[in-house]
Write a protein that binds this DNA or RNA. Structure first.
Length: 492
RNA sequence: GGCGCGGUACCCAAGUGGUAAGGGAGAGGUCUGCAAAACCUUUAUGCGUCGGUUCGAUUCCGACCCGCGCCUCCA
């Protein structure tokens, strides 16, 4: 099944067709490691992760490159404010970034190059452009890209630059450019800021050049797909195209994938709006990593998504239902006769699941297909109409579902605990939600001991004691469920 | 101003030229010592408004209203 995917460049949904049929070679703009990642960042990476996983489900191998931008204005500014060397500062936030990605179940791309390790590649790319007079050196030693030399400029973001007057809005410190639209390839060293001595002079790279250089270094002049947040479409990706195609005279990425913005409480997230959240903020508030992942994936990537705390709670509940169901399918003994009706439904829904994902990554519809099976199978199981074969087929589907959504395995406790440890170290433990520290401190053994005690009390028909234990555990976020197959408990 | 997206039940949300998936929440019920879990029933004659095309529109077209994003090295 081919994956149909919207291509920003063509403006239509078209089959994702890797040049080498069984390998998807893609580039995704990675983080600038100047601070902790916020949930908007992660929405993008999460949907790129889904793309990866769906491609793999369709039998493709992956060569996925994601850069780390470890030098830029914000980094220089923040590192100075923190009184840390830049490399130490960026290392800290890069580490945090990958911890967060792991917490959210985002797979690590195959290749993760750093901007600061790719300077020579950028320099040589700029030199190539300079040979054709596309790159030019300004009086202060900075290098710019001459947009007039690239007639296709604007083809990605569908902007028509004809008629825009040069110099209409020139910044004071940009007066050296030939045209206001020209963008920096290389910034001359100033004020003793981070710089490299190169054949272009002493300075540091402009933002866009790093992605062109790193993408082409690892994927060649033309590759299958380029991804990023919608805001990167212009100017970042437009500039990448201009630089790369001017240098190689070949098409750059063939398919462009953009994830639309996340809104929080109906507004674009921003610190001044007070609706700005990092992953760690949410973990400290007591929300589970799996719920955050599931919520961020519940709205397809091409739609704006409005993030709410209510939504997080709903997602957590939905995951609980899935996990309970998966556990039931794994552990219950199914002695029913083969239920061909159920078997047909499972097959049909699994197909619907695949089809939904292959249709521009419709995660909402894919989700629904899984839930259709949950309800039908639970219902059948209640009537003892599930065969061992049925259960097996359901487990296969669940695994397929989880190979994309990755929420069934409960890593939440561990992740929350790690977040609390981090908060302790950073002096932010005061922000932790009430009871969170206590709940995290409660070990499985301690819980089991209380559960056993309650079971004994129940046997002795000492219901008052049993209920007291249940309430005590509930206060610490542990729910007890009695069933025919014994007592289960889970952390809420 | 230019470009683009969206307005579907209490909340989130999918979708189609032929009469509204799924999740969460609420209500009632079955089960249970009581709960929980699970299941059953139930919650939009309705898909922003007004026109048009059509045998038929939520789905196509037009206008309007509302919300949002990009056009500033913000995912």
């Amino acid at each position: 099944m081919a994956i149909d995917l919207f291509n920003t460049l063509s403006g239509t949904v078209e089959p994702l067709a890797p040049e080498q049929a069984n390998e998807l070679r893609m580039y995704c703009c990675g983080p600038t490691v100047y601070d902790y990642g916020h949930i908007g960042n992660f929405r993008t990476f999460l949907h790129v992760d889904v793309l990866r996983r769906v491609a793999r489900l369709q039998g493709m191998k992956l060569k996925h490159v994601m850069n780390i931008t470890d030098v830029d204005d914000k980094i220089i500014r923040n590192a100075a404010a923190a009184n840390m060397p830049i490399s130490e500062y960026t290392a800290k936030f890069e580490r945090a970034f990958f911890e967060d990605m792991e917490a959210l179940g985002v797979e690590r791309p195959e290749i993760v190059p750093h901007a600061t390790e790719s300077i020579p590649d950028m320099v040589s790319l700029i030199q190539t452009l300079a040979k054709e007079d596309i790159a030019y050196r300004a009086d202060d030693g900075s290098w710019y890209f001459r947009i007039a030399k690239f007639p296709d400029y604007g083809k990605l973001s569908k902007k028509d630059f004809e008629g825009i007057e040069d110099g209409a809005r020139v910044d004071v410190d940009e007066y050296e450019k030939d045209s206001a639209r020209d963008f920096a390839l290389w910034k001359a060293e100033k004020n003793g800021e981070a710089s490299w001595q190169t054949d272009l002079g002493t300075g540091r790279p402009g933002w866009h050049i790093e992605c062109s250089a790193m993408a082409m270094k690892h994927l060649g002049p033309t590759f299958d797909l380029h991804a990023g947040g919608e805001d990167l479409m212009f100017p970042h990706h437009e500039n990448e195209i201009a630089q790369s195609e001017s240098a190689t005279h070949k098409p750059f990425a063939r398919h462009w994938f953009h994830v639309r913005f996340l809104l929080v409480e109906g507004k674009k997230m921003s610190k001044s709006e007070g609706n700005f959240f990092t992953l760690r903020d949410l973990l400290l508030k007591g929300y589970r990593a799996s719920a955050i992942r599931f919520l961020l994936l519940s709205v397809p990537y091409r739609h704006q998504m409005n993030f709410t705390f209510e939504g997080l709670t709903e997602s957590a509940n939905a995951i609980d239902r899935l996990r309970t169901f998966a556990e039931r399918m794994r552990t219950a003994i199914f002695s029913g006769e083969e239920n061909s009706e159920l078997a047909a439904l499972i097959a049909e829904k699994q197909q619907a699941f695949d089809a939904a994902l292959a249709t521009d990554l419709n995660t909402a519809e894919a989700r629904a297909a899984m839930f259709d099976v949950v309800r039908a199978a639970n219902s059948a199981a209640d009537q003892n109409k599930v065969s061992a074969e049925n259960a097996k087929a359901i487990l296969v589907f669940l695994q397929r579902f989880d190979s994309v959504f990755d929420v069934l395995t409960d890593r939440d406790q561990k992740i929350t605990k790690a977040a609390l440890d981090w908060a302790e170290k950073e002096g932010r433990i005061g922000e932790a939600a009430e009871g969170l520290v206590e709940a995290a401190g409660l070990s499985d053994n301690e819980i089991q001991k209380l559960v056993d005690e309650r079971t004994l009390a129940k046997k002795q028909r000492n219901f008052a004691r049993a209920d007291a234990i249940r309430n005590e555990l509930a206060e610490k976020g542990v729910l007890i469920e009695d069933s025919k197959d014994g007592v289960r408990w889970k952390r809420k």
